[in-house]
């Protein structure tokens, strides 16, 4: 029995890299966009976890860095298109915050392509799927994050 368990562990260790992505989606557009994707049965990669925020402008460097610290391979911040923001200027704020995050991530020596800022409206379910697929493909080519500390398999 014990031998069997170790065999399966070996298999998972050799398995190819499956990225883990954290997606911050704003309540009014992108989260609804992800919903639309679901309702329309859009087929896309399942390698992401959505965190709903009231506005993309609320996503500060702290949030993105925490996700990276805890081992996320990529972080997506998604909000409303310019002019569509529920809070009028929230997504401009998101750009400001994101630039700062990008600078910090660069200095930390992580690839800046690991973080991404996108605009997805509530109607763009297909686009949400495309954005996720594209990002997953990009992270897969980049490989696991240097901070991705998976628990070591015990012998």
């Amino acid at each position: 029995m014990a031998g069997k368990v170790s065999k399966t562990k070996k298999k998972t260790a050799k398995a190819k890299f499956v990225p883990n992505i954290v997606a911050f989606a704003c309540n009014w557009c992108s989260y609804a966009g992800a919903d639309t994707a679901g309702i329309n049965r859009v087929q896309y990669s399942p390698n992401f976890r959505v965190i709903r925020t009231m506005c993309s402008g609320r996503v500060t460097p702290g949030h993105v860095l925490k996700a990276l610290k805890l081992g996320a391979d990529g972080v997506l911040v998604s909000g409303c298109h310019f002019g569509d923001c529920h809070y009028i200027f929230g997504n401009y704020k998101a750009v400001e915050q994101f630039d700062r995050t990008k600078a910090l991530v660069k200095t930390l020596g992580l690839d800046e392509r690991r973080i991404r800022l996108e605009w997805v409206s509530a109607a763009e379910g297909t686009r949400w799927g495309e954005v996720i697929d594209e990002f997953v493909a990009q992270i897969t080519t980049l490989g696991p994050s240097p901070l991705n500390h998976k628990p070591k398999s015990r012998k």
Binding site: G62, L65, L68, T107, L108, G109, L110, P146, L147, H149
Partner: peptide, 15 residues
């Protein structure tokens, strides 16, 4: 978070 990330041995900073 930056301080804690700096403790990861694999990190190669660009500073």
């Amino acid at each position: 978070h930056i301080m804690e990330m700096a403790a990861a041995p694999a990190l190669k900073q660009n500073r």
